[in-house]
């Protein structure tokens, strides 16, 4: 009885083994890297991380006219770098909070470096430095301006945020729901004017009460994001300022 059992078992194992074969396809080694740059200021394009940021759509046409898109996402300063791309013929198109670019077909082999100049929907620039207030809040001044004169992208401002985060990764993808401030509707800032925003209104100014930083001193990272009433891939995408660091008292 026992030997039959072993025999059966070894037969099954054998059957399982024969289907094993080495996957001898080389792993991807090509590099595709580069930057997204604001065409107006030549500064790095500030963006979010993840699907609300810049997504580079890569269509690999080497094998198929209708490939499943491969998406690659940029870093917060618009840089991208992927060292594990398969060699091939790709249709590349960065998508984000800027006037759309046309798809460009390139061959990727070895290291390919690209720089894309884009016209952002909005530019958000700091005016002066953030001020930490005695009451446990911080006030910043920013100026939001149009980044493009393209008539298709002149929609009204829809939403602006002073994002506050405990880490340097700050934006709509990661922010403190206690200390950030949301501006929408009647509290929206005017375009082209210098506006000041104070922390601590996560549900919008006047919703609940203003939140103050904890009593102990620590670092926070601030960044202002704004978006117009125009979605990209059905996603609300923001244009950002650079990140500033503050230390609370």
């Amino acid at each position: 009885m026992k030997s039959i059992k072993y025999l059966a078992l070894s037969l099954f194992l054998f059957a399982g083994m024969v289907s094993c074969e080495d996957d001898n396809y080389d792993f991807p080694t090509e590099t595709f890297k580069g930057t997204i740059v604001d065409a107006g200021t030549k500064q790095p394009f500030q963006t979010a991380i993840g699907n609300t940021g810049v997504r580079i759509s890569m269509m690999e046409y080497s094998w198929n006219e209708k490939p499943t898109p491969y998406y690659m996402y940029c870093m917060m300063d618009g840089a991208f770098n992927n060292t594990k791309i398969f060699e091939g013929n790709y249709g590349i198109k960065p998508e984000g909070a800027f006037v759309p670019l046309a798809e460009e077909i390139i061959d990727i082999k070895g290291t390919v470096e690209k720089s894309y100049e884009v016209e952002p929907f909005l530019r958000v620039e700091w005016i002066g430095e953030p001020v930490v207030n005695a009451n446990g809040t911080a006030t910043v001044q920013v100026k939001i301006t149009r980044g493009t004169s393209n008539p298709d992208y002149q929609q009204a401002l829809a939403e602006a945020w002073l994002f506050v985060s405990e880490t340097q990764y700050v934006g709509d993808f990661s922010y403190s729901t206690n200390y950030s401030t949301k501006l929408s509707g009647s509290t929206l800032p005017a375009v082209d004017a210098t506006v000041s925003i104070t922390t601590g209104w996560p549900g919008g100014i006047g919703t609940g009460s203003q939140r103050s930083f904890p009593a102990y001193s620590r670092k926070y990272f601030l960044r202002v994001g704004a978006r117009i009433n125009k979605q990209v891939n059905s996603t609300n995408v923001y244009n950002y300022s650079t990140t500033k660091e503050i230390t609370t008292k």
Binding site: K66, T68, Q231, N233, S234, T235, N236
Partner: peptide, 20 residues
């Protein structure tokens, strides 16, 4: 609410088997 979900994603299995 994530505004993408006004139109929900078509299941990946369908996208993979139907290139159109």
């Amino acid at each position: 609410f994530d505004t993408r979900y006004y139109y929900q994603p078509i299941p990946t299995s369908e996208i993979n088997k139907n290139p159109n």
